[in-house]
Amino acid sequence: MAVLVYAESLTGSIKKSALEAVTYGKLAADALGTECIALTIGKADGAASLGQYGASKVYNVSTADNNFDSQVYAAVVADAAQKLGADTVVFSHSSTGKSLAGRVAIRLEAGLVTSVLTAPTNGFEVKKGVFSGKGFATYSISSANRVVTIAPNTFRPNASGSDATVETLDVAVPAGRVKVTGQATVDGVVPLPEAELVVSAGRGMKGPENWGMIEEMATILGATTACSRPVADIDWRPHHEHVGQTGVAIRPNLYIAVGISGAIQHLAGVNQSKVIVVINKDPEAPFFKAADYGVVGDLFDVVPRLNEALKKFKANN
């Protein structure tokens, strides 16, 4: 009974999160003593490369288009799982994967766990973060079929094997009821949920006119910018940058927080970052308790200095 990974390609080519999903699929397949196969739907440039991340076979359903309708895609994935003899289906924990996982779980009568952090052990036990990073829960799936979504930035893709052959898979594609009319993404910027480096700032910045130095730091590092909630609420920054309990939850390698106090609701969305740097003039700011590195000082002095140091570092590395 194979592990089937749905590899996303809504923009027409395989996404980075799909490489992570296949990396996980391979780990899960090894743990379960089976093989990992990948499924793509519609146009999916780069599908063969999934072989390098652990997929022994890649299938494509070419009769479906790239307009996302969870009802259509779920029917395709569930049918493919049955046709290919898969009892475990893996999705990214993305806007697409999360919309599909539940639907596929119903179709396969499968137990569902979202945003998992570990490969299955002990039958099928997987761990996930709960209570906004204040704890972990280990779930056990008792059903014969299982569906999981995997936490982003957790299973780092490492190309090793060779390309897989891509085979066309013949499954019925039902008519959709959702008509996608447009898609707008900010070009050239890594979306926050996928970003490995994030530079974030809060109310300590005093006003939107001061964000130049934050954007400069992000440019030097190749990082994505984020902000605290009040900053988005007063329109200093766009809403999609808001991280925290009610914003985007992220787990980058590096989170640099400038002029953010570190309220519990802010921490909830960022406390799973691997390394946290806090720059704040108040030594009592709660964020320092969650930080790995701290700089107590006025951000208007510290940030320009840090940008200079980063530029020097980048010039030599």
Partner: peptide, 13 residues
């Protein structure tokens, strides 16, 4: 079909 069998605290910073 999926039940929690154990909780853990995050590692202390």
């Amino acid at each position: 079909l999926a039940t929690i069998v154990r909780y853990d605290y995050p590692p202390e910073k």
